[in-house]
């Protein structure tokens, strides 16, 4: 029982701490790639603390409620991951959180927020099928949706599911809000929709969505570790390489539009998944 409590606590702490550090590292690495010095490592924490200290101002109560629901769902998803729960359940909870974020944005009347919400729905529509296919891949390989079974599998999954890892990369790029998929909102509020989805969230509620985002980042990185679950070094190397590539892609592409995203992510993503799944089935 105490073990469960410890795991829950781990999940709740790891989300903001690891997520914030990853975000800080991301900003430093991005700055270096652009030949800048960049902010200190702890800058994301400073930002969030500053936001939390601000006077709460809401457009309507719904939006505040949605922000709380989003962070709750995101943290529950991560806690479930730490508890080695069912992958399908985790993704379901995570999707609920994402939808609450959209509902919150839709509850305001700002056209930027509205259009951002529509685009976010399209993004969810593009990455959710891919995530399900990745989970199906795990099932076909291990015969189980449980994380305990997947972590106990003796061989690195990447060798069997290389294409599905690329597919997960697409989902990861969308989830991390990186170019070319930073459509609904992006990190620097410098696009045609201002901050898109998050335009009308402000102060502490914006901080909540940011912390919720960190939970999701840690969760997605956790899913990446499943592909090399046999050794700690393998996991670390895989994570480092994956994240470096994410930042690199962010820096070498421009933002695309949602039509391109749908056709590209579905076209390439579904093809790659199917090829991988058929290969698994044959092998």
């Amino acid at each position: 029982m105490t073990e469960t409590a410890v795991l829950i606590l781990c999940g709740l702490i790891a989300g903001p701490v690891v997520g914030g550090l990853v975000s800080g590292l991301d900003r430093i690495l991005t700055a270096r790639m652009q030949s800048r010095i960049g902010p200190p490592l702890l800058q994301p924490f400073f930002d969030v603390v500053k936001l939390l200290a601000k006077e709460p101002l809401v457009v309507n109560v719904w939006q505040a409620f949605c922000a709380y629901c989003y962070i709750a769902a995101a943290s529950i998803a991560l806690v479930l991951f730490f508890l080695q729960s069912d992958l399908l359940l985790i993704f379901f909870v995570q999707a609920v959180g994402a939808v609450f974020l959209v509902v919150g944005a839709l509850s305001s009347t700002s056209p930027y927020s509205q259009i951002g919400a529509h685009r976010e729905l399209l993004q969810i529509l593009s990455y959710e099928p891919l995530l399900v296919l990745v989970v199906v891949g795990f099932y076909l390989e291990t015969g189980s949706f449980k994380l305990t079974d997947i972590y106990a599998w003796p061989h690195p999954m990447l060798l069997k599911l290389p294409f599905l890892f690329i597919v997960l990369g697409y989902a990861l790029t969308i989830k991390l809000r990186k170019s070319p998929f930073d459509l609904s909102t992006c990190h620097h509020a410098h696009q045609e929709l201002v901050k898109g989805l998050l335009t009308d969230y402000s102060g502490p509620f914006l901080a909540l969505t940011e912390i919720g985002h960190w939970f999701e980042v840690v969760l997605m990185l956790g899913v990446c570790t499943l592909f090399w679950a046999t050794s700690w070094i393998g996991m670390a190397v895989l994570l480092a390489v994956t994240y470096f590539l994410e930042v690199l892609v962010d820096n070498v592409t421009s933002r695309m539009n949602w039509r391109w995203m749908l056709s590209y992510v579905w076209g390439v993503g579904l093809t790659l998944s199917l090829v991988n799944l058929i290969w698994l089935h044959q092998g």
Binding site: S35, R36, H190, T253, S254
Partner: peptide
């Protein structure tokens, strides 16, 4: 212009 289509790193390079 690079920034207008979301290519921040290119923006930084031109300004550099």
């Amino acid at each position: 212009f690079a920034d207008s289509f979301g290519f921040e790193s290119l923006f930084m390079q031109f300004w550099r």
